[in-house]
Design a protein around this nucleic acid. Structure first.
Length: 918
RNA sequence: GGGGAAUUAGCUCAGUUGGGAGAGCGCGGGCUUUGCAAGCCUGAGGUCACCGGUUCGAGUCCGGUAUUCUCCA
């Protein structure tokens, strides 16, 4: 009786739960607070700070299945996915963890027990590896080897020793590390894919597919310092990882991950959609695998709040999605189909990863939208490719240069295989060598940019040591600084630490910039988009009205969980560690922030009501002055929509809904309909802010921020702007309360003033302005008409100055004109009237001389050229010019010599004409 | 983080050594038709993304910024 994948996952979690482990939910695929990492790529990511000793958890034993993505680097290459049966972009990593609790004995015992007794894998097919340094520098892991023999009934011949590459695990250049012990499974000789290689012998850590690694038990016992030395750790940890998909394939007895029940429903759905026979499915198996694998990846990524975009992780998502779409096209899909694949993924994985069904509509819409975008770029690329081929065909070529093909790819995202296909239809080929050469050049130029830079660890270490120290001395409770911001704005407490210029000090003096750590604090710490509080920390002596010392707090932040730091300036006295203080928040400012924050929730709720449930928060900023709310929506909001949203928010304010804050656990909160945000990390206990009647809340969100107690306190809500942040994300900025009142007042004052100037009622200002603008426009036209009339009159008198130069009618004159267009127009009249001739007109515009020269086409053949003519004229006034043979213009600097310049024209014409005849 | 491309009328886009800002669709008015689809005539609509530089002169050349697209890491 084979187990389903869901049963296997659950049995893993249950097995360790029954041995004192806390079942921990998978962390998001988007690592928070770790800029060195594009995606969560291993089970230990979320515990990294625990291993580093920077963070404490309420448990010492944990078990989980972690969502992981590997798209580049040593572990995986996107291009390989689909070619074999076991590489994936998205996968689950099962793990059990000990944080300074049990160690090698238990880890080995339980792993063996689970594999052989619960999952009933035959022990004769299991192998274990243990660390033995090939350089002899590090200690052999005799302890692990001992326990393998002692607590398991593994065949003693099946315990092997391997060196650093396979059995020593390090997190990075420095940090926690240690030996590991791997468990391998022998799938049998029929799985060997190297049988035709001479001299090949199947073995553990060999080249072939017969032995595969099932489970890695890492024993963290050292810390590697900057000099590369290994220091034994006081607390030893266990970090294990078992690739879930591979495990399922073994337990279900299939030879490919894609044949497990994690993938086969997806593969079947692809076949159904494509209308393929079984033979056709086998022919296109690589495409099937790619679509199935990538389908899972994109579903989970979007489920964790990643949107397709053009940089960083957003770009990776787009790349994976488009790769899947491309393979889909290859096997015959003509329109977006990936949402159908995602539906199956959600069906399979939804029961355990509940964020998927909760976000289903959004996930599917996002996928289809991006797929459509991709089809559009393909269309654009096709048009461009056609153009390129047209040009080549005209030149008698049939090979598309590699560089052109690469440009299609790098600028339009148009893939090479498609270029080849389309080219072949018209009998063209592609210079692939040139393509790869261009790709290499591009890679060198753009890939030379540095990688992500690691954060300054030293700063963190100062805080980390400080926090440990304060806890040990009992200055702070185990959970750290008490954060008592909820519902209060002041409290009495004690200074437990002071920092100046990043160093721990015992006192500070007036004027110093300091960081103050208090035993408890009423200051809200920047979080969830809400800015931190400002205010004062002051030390009073009994019965004295004035404080002995006072610090003006400008910023509060949390460098580590449990540690809250107030940064500010000492405005009076000398603060000392140990002083009793009164910490008080700037109340008015806190209230302004609360108004904006509550209004943000109302806005979120109304946007979903007005625009639809696809609206998801994509970011927010709440300050005392204004609020900014980013959300997913594909189109610009119309004025009607904005009006509707603004009106509904104000209606909700007027309804004077009460607010209620409740603490509950994450799952029941989400189940009762509370909105949780993408990419946010929530603990088990969450804070829910409900607006409206408690039994039927108007809005409920998981939120740690500060709020008003009834909506009417918000006052007025007014949208300032609506704009775009990126593809599919819009931004609304708005004000409330005092800021809205100030805005309304100043706007109305301006309106009143405008009405007074216009001598009309404020309600009529827009109409009045429109009619004035209309009038202004018609007057401008009238002026233009009159100017033309004057010009025409001047032109008539000019005609009397036409001279005959060698049989050519020539007119050179200075006129009054305010723009170059008038000069051109006059030259048109001249040409129309004379039929044949040369005209050069000059006028002063903005204090500088300008010229236009025009020559009728018949005279061009006699060697005349307006451009050359005017160049010579302009030289006299210190300028230059040029143009076409028939029409040219020029400018200069010296107004006083304009007459002289124009007087040259007859001679110049005469010379040009005579050189032609002579 | 880096490379490349794009940004011109409400929309889709032309604009080739720097020298008259254009087309199609859409919109307004008029004509034709029994009516409709349409056709004909005519009109309005532009800070050529923004800022700076070169030049007598910049949609066009150079530098920077913003936004969008795209590739590499």
């Amino acid at each position: 009786m084979t187990m389903t994948s869901a049963e296997i996952r659950q049995s893993f979690l249950d097995f360790f739960a029954s041995r004192g482990h806390t079942i921990v939910p998978s962390a998001s695929l988007v690592p928070d607070d770790d800029p060195t990492l594009l995606f969560t790529n291993a089970g230990m990511n979320q515990f990294k700070n625990v291993f580093l000793g920077l963070e404490k958890r309420p448990y010492t034993r944990a078990v989980d299945t972690q969502k992981c993505m590997r798209v580049s680097g040593k572990h995986n290459d996107l291009e390989d996915v689909g070619r074999d049966t076991y590489h994936h972009t998205f996968f689950e990593m099962l793990g059990n963890w000990s944080f300074g609790d049990y160690y090698k004995k238990e880890a080995i015992t339980w792993a063996w027990e689970l594999l052989t007794e619960v999952w009933k894998l035959p022990r004769e097919r299991l192998w274990a590896t243990v660390f033995k340094d090939e350089r002899g520098e590090l200690e052999t892991d005799a302890e692990a080897a001992h326990w393998w023999q002692e607590v398991t009934d593994i065949d003693s011949q099946h315990v092997l020793f391997f060196g650093r590459k396979d059995n020593f695990w390090e997190m990075g250049e420095t940090g926690p590390c240690g030996p590991c012990s791997e468990i391998h499974f022998d799938r049998g000789p029929e799985y060997c894919d190297k049988q035709d290689v001479p001299g090949h012998v199947c073995r553990v850590n060999g080249e072939c597919g017969r032995f595969i690694e099932l489970w890695n038990l890492v024993f963290i016992q050292y810390n590697r310092d900057e000099t590369g030395r290994l220091e034994p750790l006081p607390a030893k940890h266990v970090d294990t990882g078992a690739g879930f998909e591979r495990l399922v394939s073994i337990l279900q007895g299939v030879d490919s991950n894609y044949k497990t029940d994690l993938f086969s429903p997806i593969m079947n759905r692809i076949q159904e959609l494509a209308g393929h026979s079984d033979a056709e499915r086998e022919e296109n198996i690589v495409a099937y695998r790619v679509i199935a694998d990538h389908g899972r990846a994109i579903t989970f990524l979007i489920g964790d709040g990643v949107l397709p975009g053009n940089e960083g992780r957003n770009y990776v998502l787009r790349m994976i999605l488009r790769r899947a779409a491309r393979f889909g096209r290859k096997i015959g899909f003509q329109e977006p189909f990936l949402a159908e694949i995602a539906k199956v993924v959600i069906e399979i994985m939804g029961p355990h990863f509940t964020e998927l069904p909760a976000r289903q509509k959004f996930i599917l819409e996002t996928i289809t939208q991006e797929e459509k975008r991709f089809y559009r770029t393909l269309d654009a690329g096709l048009a461009l490719l056609d153009e390129i081929m047209d040009e080549l065909a005209a030149a008698g070529e049939t090979v598309i240069p590699g560089k052109k093909a690469f440009t299609l790819w790098s600028e339009r995202g148009f893939p090479l295989d498609l270029t080849k296909d389309v080219a072949a239809e018209r009998g063209f080929t592609v210079d692939e060598d040139g393509y790869w050469q261009a790709m290499e050049e591009h890679r060198l130029i753009s890939g030379a940019g540095q990688r992500f830079e690691a954060l300054g660890e030293s700063e963190i270490e100062v805080y980390s040591r400080l926090l440990d120290d304060l806890r040990q001395k009992g200055k702070l409770p185990p959970q750290g600084v008490l954060h008592l911001y909820d519902g209060r704005v002041d409290l009495d407490t004690e200074v437990v630490a002071l920092l100046k210029d990043g160093r721990i000090v015992t006192k500070a003096k007036e004027g110093d910039e300091v960081e103050v750590v208090l035993a408890s604090t009423p200051f809200y710490v920047e979080s969830g988009g809400q800015v931190g509080d400002t205010g004062f920390i002051a030390h009073y002596h009994e019965d004295e009205g004035e404080p002995r010392w006072e610090v003006e707090v400008q910023e509060t932040y949390q460098p580590l969980p449990g540690l809250i730091v107030h940064r500010g300036q000492v405005v009076a006295g000398t603060p000392r560690v140990g002083d009793e203080v009164w910490a008080v928040v700037d109340y008015e400012r806190r209230l302004d922030i609360a108004r904006n924050h509550t209004a943000t929730h109302l806005l979120h709720s109304e946007l979903r009501y007005v625009l639809g449930e696809h609206v998801q928060q994509a970011g927010s900023l709440v300050t005392p002055d204004r609020l900014r709310f980013d959300f997913t929506h594909s189109a610009m909001l119309t004025q009607d929509e904005l009006d509707a949203v603004e009106r509904s928010v104000n209606d909700a304010i007027l309804a004077n809904y009460p607010l209620e804050v409740v603490y509950t656990d994450y799952h029941s909160a989400v189940e009762s309909g509370a909105i949780a945000l993408f990419g946010e990390k929530y603990g088990e206990r969450v804070r829910v802010v409900k607006i409206g009647a408690p039994e039927k809340p108007f809005s409920q969100e998981l939120c740690g921020g500060t709020h008003v107690s009834r909506t009417s306190e918000i006052g007025l809500f007014r949208i300032l702007s609506e704009s775009s942040v990126g593809a599919g994300v819009r931004r609304i900025e708005a004000v409330t309360g005092r800021a809205a009142q100030r805005l309304a007042q100043s706007r109305l004052n301006v309106l009143d003033a405008a009405a007074a100037y216009l001598k009309c009622r404020p309600e009529e200002v827009d109409r009045k302005v429109l009619s004035l603008m209309g009038e202004l426009q018609s007057r401008e036209k009238e002026i233009e008409r009159l100017q033309r009339k004057i010009a025409q009159r001047d032109f008539e008198t000019l005609l009397t100055q036409v001279r005959d130069v060698g049989g050519v009618r020539v007119l050179a004159a200075r006129v009054e004109a305010t723009n170059i267009e008038t000069l051109r127009e006059m030259s048109d009249w001249f040409r129309n009237r004379m039929g044949s001739g040369v005209i050069v007109l000059g006028a002063v515009m903005a204090g500088k001389p300008n010229f236009v020269a025009a020559i009728t086409p018949d005279l061009i053949q006699r060697g005349l050229h307006a451009g050359q003519l005017i160049k010579a004229v302009a030289q006299v006034v210190g300028g230059g010019g040029g143009g076409k043979p028939t029409l040219a213009q020029a400018g200069g600097r010296d107004v006083s010599r304009m007459g002289e310049a124009l007087s040259l024209v007859p001679d110049l014409v005469a010379r040009a004409v005579s050189s032609e005849t002579g």
